[in-house]
Amino acid sequence: MNIEWYIVLSSLLFALGAMGILVRRSPIVILLCLEIMLNAGNLALVAFSRMVGNQQGQVFAIVVMVVAACEVVVGLGLIVAIFRRKLPLDVDSLRELRG
């Protein structure tokens, strides 16, 4: 398959993930959609790495994975903390930063 198929797939997944963030209200699901977006990015990176012919894109993708893992850890920690304080797990209710 030509590389452009992979790229188009990647952009579709990215758009799906973005839409998911906008639509869902549970923080866990929002984080999951965020994962989808990150993975779409990874797919694009690896595809381009194949297109160019060196492996730097793949290394980049690994580092992205590391970062995603860290972000998930912190995000889930936040969610656990929110849950522990008996606040509703609903992004629309947690709006104290309202100006």
Partner: peptide, 9 residues
């Protein structure tokens, strides 16, 4: 290059 399969590796 997007329209190709990529170089031979």
């Amino acid at each position: 290059a997007l329209g190709t399969h990529g170089p031979n590796v």
